[in-house]
Design a protein around this nucleic acid. Sequence first.
DNA 1: CGCCCCTGTTTTTTT
DNA 2: AACAGGGGCG
Length: 787
Amino acid sequence: MQKQSDAAATAGPPPETTSIAARAMAALRPGGAPYLDGLNPEQRRAVETTDGPVLVLAGAGTGKTRVLTTRIAHLIATGRARPYDILAVTFTNKAAREMKARIGALIGPAGEGMPWLGTFHAIGTKILRRHAELVGLKSDFTILGTDDQLRLMKQVIADQNIDEKRWPARALGHAIDGWKNRGLSPEQVPPGEAGAFAFGKGGALYTAYQARLATLNAVDFGDLLLLCLKLWRENPDVLENYQHRFRYILVDEYQDTNVAQYLWLRLLAQGHRNVACVGDDDQSIYGWRGAEVDNILRFEHDFPGAAVVRLERNYRSTGHILAAASGLIAKNEGRLGKTLRTEDVAGERVTVTGAWDSEEEARLVAESIESLQAKKHPLSEIAVLVRISAQMREIEDRFVQLGLPYRVIGGPRFYERAEIRDALAYLRATANPADDLAFERIINTPKRGLGDATLQQLHTYARAERVPLLLAARRLIETDELKPRVRSTLRALAESFSRWARAVETVPHSEVAQTILEESGYTEMWQKDRSADAAGRLENLKEFVRSMEEFPDLAGFLEHVALVMDASEAEGAERVSLMTLHAAKGLEFDTVFLPGWEDGLFPNQRALDESGRAGLEEERRLAHVGLTRARKRAKLSFAVNRRIHGLWSSTIPSRFIDELPAGSVDVVEAPAHFSAGASRFDRNPAPFGSSYGTPGWQRAQANTAASGRGFGQSHGASPGGRGGPRQIEGELVAKSTGAPSAYAAGARVFHTKFGPGTVAGVDGNKLTVDFDKAGRKMVLDSFVQPG
DNA sequence: CGCCCCTGTTTTTTT
DNA sequence: AACAGGGGCG
């Protein structure tokens, strides 16, 4: 496959033609084409193969972003395209921002104001606003966030008299999301799937949901793409216009595209057929939210004659790290196949350390960081990457105890916070009196005595008269259908909204926001709140009002908030970064800690249960992403005991550890200071079987016994010095026997710690056992005896 | 209408 | 274990 693609690439239009012309044209400009300097031959080919479809398979650390930005610079500098002829799509705002900045740096002001560089959703919005009426919307449509969607779904479910407990709105949301990801409008959903939800009502619910959106003049994120497809299919002239307009199309992170995005791109690319997709099938980690690795695997089929360029020269990691990552990812089937290589030194081996429990693991990580810090390793160049957010807690606790400065990347986002969503709801309801969802959110926030009963009345009236809630309120307060108290409260609220709406016309919008928050009693609500986070919320509200000043008007600000759900965070501070593996994609650090490599956690059991082998391969890609974040040092670890949902479970090392090439790995034993006193476990819970028979493990056990209790030696881990971690080269702690287990599902077994149980599943020498007392656990078969 | 207790849930995350 | 959301009660 690899050979084939390369052949196809060279069989295409000879790149030299464009290359010479490009260079000649660039040479006309003073200073030649400095932006091409320093590209390697493959990168250069990816940049200079301008015409026709191109797939750039860019492995981790091979200069993907550089290629993308240089390619745009090249298109503009050589006069092939003006900035507005180029469509460049990314997935995240961050990526879009970065690309803008780098293009600016490459070619100066000429590259500024690329109007069609943005996320799929931002560009989709831009297009839909221009043609809103063709898809049944007004151009000032609202973009709903997930919480609004959820509330809408709840209403729809209730309307259809379906038990929301049996068929939760979340599940419906998931189903509809899935359909939208696959580009399916309600009528296109396969009947079988539509019928699977709520006794055959899934399709009807989807239809009803879309109808509700339409009456609200609102769309959700999926619609931003789906409605473009509808627009183009029903209006070929409009499609043609865009096909013509976008002379060159570039797509970043192509492996993350879902079907809807793929269809979207394909329609547009059919014009000039100059589409360059950059991606890495080995870094596809978003399958669970609809990304189709197949899109990248099928590229050459979908775009016949496509040139394929592989970027395999890695400029990031040292040899052993790259070897470990490559060796691991090689276990995946269904990949296009790349071999990363580096000209860098072999460097340090990847280390693997076993800890007694997750608490000790956190301590090991923290102490390891402290000793690096002592050697002047900048903290900003250290990251701890975890599989799930829940792992962060223990690590944070440890950092706090030691006073290690750290920052969590990708936590709850600014615009997702309750106080911000409330403030936004006030602004939305002010800007758009028909925004029922916003009005509903704040009608009783702060508490003003307008509860469910009142809301029901409003709903009934609004539905009967087909008017928005706020208008329904205005009309009802003129009748005597409401209790006097409710009536006066509601009148005051309605009048406030009128007043605020008038203010928007004359007063700067951030001042109006300030006024709204004060007059509505919202600020006061938090001032009176005695809970610990109230002060922080007030701070957030201040920041929120302040951030509005950066936008020309209220509508502009609301659009920004709907599409750009992240607030820029201060970078470069002297802190350790803590984040999930997913959040780490695209980042790099000198030293990377990868804790929690245990079967069940990583690879994650749920991924395995839900997606089987595909799930396992995605987990493996995640591991690959994790390893390739490291420039100089990657430190894996696992714990033998971990608390899962509050219960202690015994765990076994990740199968991925076994899959690493032994030659690039060092097993490093934990410094000998197991916190025996703090553990609630017997030191020797089970006779160690073959898997724990390695010298390192045995020594760890011996040291534990000898070192006694307490924390006394916690700083004795001076690396390189005496008493520091000893290394046993090439030995793997979790070495599998490879031999199939002697046990079969259904067999009765006995475990010294967990007692009797029944084997539920077998995977090599790893057993899933339902213990009579202890519940379901995963254990190595050498830990149990026939029972 | 509002508060409190109980119950069920718990991957990864963007737009 | 921790949290969120719903139901029931005052």
